[in-house]
Design a protein around this nucleic acid. Structure first.
Lengths: 211, 211
DNA sequence: TAGATTGTTAATCGATTAACAATC
DNA sequence: TAGATTGTTAATCGATTAACAATC
């Protein structure tokens, strides 16, 4: 965390998956695991697991392996889910509601402070207690409530515009579900979830299997 | 397509993005583009664009560049979206409904033949004309309707079970939104959309920016 | 033809895997 | 101590970028 060497995005991409498997091991009461055992479960090489983890420090013990709970917590810290983040959802359609209703995010420290939409018939309504606000209030709300993350579940044209608005309002990161790139300044983090691209990769795999 | 050299998944991951940009260029009436111009728009190197495309054939012309419409169509063929695929959605929650309502998928040839759930109060209902069926009918429906793709928008435990069921029923691919790996035979394609992992990567980026 | 830009080979860079000394 | 397994260095493999001859 403190030192300067840049961690490759390939490593970061794998961390949440380690975290998930370790969480499952905890639930099954497993207290220690070797890179070899974990590699068999996860279908990656043991070497890769050790290399990945050693980017962040030595979490294991020679001759023993890794303490599951300890490693789980350490990866949690690396991923920044030991602290909470205020979040809002922009777009009260099915996708926005799906995210809002998924309670596990809250357990990981992502606190949904509000949902925004520009359909006034929704004004005053709420989703499991979370208030729906009008889009016009968005920028003020972000500043007042210290919102760090905005999930954009709106069409692409609107997403481009609102992306600029929330970047100006000072959010740290945008979770972008719109089928477009946002092209914002580099200090705004953008994590894209492009479902249509995912579906096309699936389609490619169907078209080209066992060729 | 026909020849045997394996295309790397890094290349496949980029194809849908090329496709999206080319689609936008068509909409703006652009007829030709060079790898250099496209690279500026997409923020990748021109060299990478040419390398990627030449995995599949020479689509350009020296001194001219690429014909936008032609390249768009060719990438569409590579991605297999020139033919249609029957699909069902398992899970009629917000996420399942979001996918069902997203009409662009149908335009790309992904035809949603039905939605399945085990909540009997939904029996007989429909989502924009697409019938909701009970889970017990799923395997038969897949065989009868030649379903190739199943989107799983159900909790992880159920997803593991239904994954096996639909694999046995002969689907070619599963679009898995559950927060788990499915561990199915290799001949079943699994494309994962792990939203919680995406959110953790975003969280990591917040925790580690400008360090 | 001259200019532009591809297709493709070569060079570089980075990521993964293998190997093994350190050490619990 | 002997056995096991990490942390880490070295070797390999693959992906990206650079360069340029081919050619429209």
């Amino acid at each position: 965390m403190e030192d300067n060497k840049k961690i490759s995005s390939a490593v970061i991409r794998r961390l949440p998956r380690y975290y998930r498997y370790l969480g499952e091991l905890i639930e099954s009461g497993v207290q220690r695991i070797s890179s070899k055992e974990l590699s068999a479960k996860m279908k990656v090489t043991a070497s890769q697991i050790r290399q990945d983890l050693n980017n962040f420090g030595g979490f294991g013990q020679q001759g023993y392996g890794y303490n599951v709970k300890y490693l789980y917590d350490e990866i949690g810290k690396i991923l920044g889910i030991d602290t909470s983040h205020n979040m809002v959802i922009v777009g009260a359609g099915n996708l926005g509601r799906a995210i809002c209703n998924y309670q596990d995010f809250e357990k990981r420290g992502f606190i949904i402070k509000g949902v925004f939409d520009n359909n006034d018939t929704l004004a005053g309504e709420n989703i499991r207690g979370i208030q729906i606000h009008m889009m016009s209030e968005l920028a003020d709300f972000i500043k007042k409530e210290n919102v760090e993350i905005v999930a954009l579940t709106i069409p692409k044209q609107a997403a481009k515009e609102i992306g600029k608005v929330v970047a100006d309002a000072g959010v740290k990161a945008i979770w972008n579900f719109a089928h477009t790139d946002l092209n914002l300044p580099d200090d705004v983090i953008v994590e894209n979830v492009h479902l249509s691209e995912s579906l096309m990769r699936l389609s490619y795999a169907i078209a080209n299997r066992e060729s």
